[in-house]
């Protein structure tokens, strides 16, 4: 019936989708962390990733640092960036409507996209991971080592943050802050410090995301578009759920690859770029809070 259906081809599309999906989930985690603590969507998440990638690339190429040093410096730089950003831009907005925080992140995104090429230069750089470039061949599958590492890092951090929010006292305090700031304050929780922590954690995720996505796509301003690509992931999975970020990432990754593999040859290409958004719109209509997002509890 489907003469063009080949299970090997499908399997390799699926594998690719899963790996890419996990890498999406890593970036999505940045959205989730900020949203969980502050109830605001960080529209500059993609720019965070871009900035981190620039940091990493400059350390590797211009400063000639070894790979692991570059990763550590990028991590430290992005944590400092997260803390600083909270202190300078977001803390004065505490107590204001959430919309003003969101607008501030949109403004920040534009500033970062404008300033980064000024500081780092506009040319595309590459981040080279200290691994073999050749794909790992496993049966019928060709797996890119960079994607495998990216997915591995994503799984590690997704697990770590899941534990943090469910089991650690700090994680529970952070969820309490997101639930009700005033009451959290009255329970002795330093709300501002937890906001800062959330932004710093978004910095950590962005640092790793910047390194893996930077080495996959190359480092320039266009890397910031990853932020837009991850929107369907978080909308689908639920803005405040780590599990949602994983599942959303996997679904989007797989859909994207299947669309590229089966629909593109039929319609002549391009479906990969909009299929996730179609899914996002459907998700918004059917389940606006996402698959795993919290529903508002109404008690009467």
């Amino acid at each position: 019936m489907f003469d063009w259906f080949e299970w090997e081809f499908t399997l390799s599309l699926l594998t690719n989708g899963v790996l890419i999906g996990l890498m999406y989930a890593l970036i999505a985690l940045g959205f989730v962390l900020v949203y969980k603590a502050t109830d605001a969507i960080n529209f500059a998440q993609g720019e965070f990733v871009m900035l981190a990638a620039f940091f990493g690339a400059v350390m590797l190429l211009s400063a000639g640092a070894p790979f692991w040093v570059a990763v550590l410096v990028t991590l430290a730089g992005m944590i400092a960036f997260g803390f600083g950003l909270e202190r300078v831009v977001l803390r004065p907005l505490i107590g204001r409507p959430i919309v003003s925080v969101i607008m501030a992140t949109i403004g920040l995104a534009a500033v970062l996209r404008g300033v980064a090429p000024l500081v780092f230069g506009a040319e595309t750089r590459s981040i080279v991971m200290p691994v073999e470039d050749a794909p790992i061949i496993w049966g019928p599958l060709f797996i890119s080592p960079i994607q495998l590492i990216g997915a591995g890092v994503a799984v590690m951090f997704l697990a770590a943050f899941t534990w943090f929010f469910l089991k650690s006292r700090m994680g529970i305090a952070m969820r309490a802050v997101a639930d009700n700031q005033q009451v959290a304050m009255a329970m002795g929780i330093n709300v501002e410090r937890y906001f800062a922590l959330a932004w710093a954690m978004a910095g950590v995720v962005s640092a790793l995301g910047g390194i893996v996505w930077g080495s996959l796509l190359g480092v320039d301003v266009h890397l910031a578009l990853i932020g837009l690509k991850v929107f369907p992931v978080v909308i689908l999975g639920g803005l405040d759920s780590i599990v949602g970020a994983i599942v959303g990432g996997l679904i989007i990754g797989i859909v994207e690859n299947i669309a590229a593999g089966y629909l593109d040859p039929v319609v002549g290409g391009g479906t990969k770029d909009f299929a996730p958004y179609v899914l996002m719109i459907i998700a918004l209509m059917v389940r606006p809070y996402g698959i795993f997002g919290k529903r508002q509890i109404e008690r009467v």
Binding site: R169, I172, A173, R175, A176, A178, D179, N180, Q182, V183, A184, A186, M187, G188, I189, K294, I297
Partner: peptide, 24 residues
């Protein structure tokens, strides 16, 4: 410590997590 009017529990947290947050 203040107990607010109208309960104001952390609705998205479990009972035990509410208590852990209270013991911050």
């Amino acid at each position: 410590v203040q107990v607010f009017e109208g309960r104001r529990v952390f609705v998205n947290l479990t009972v035990e997590e509410n208590l852990v947050a209270g013991g911050h």
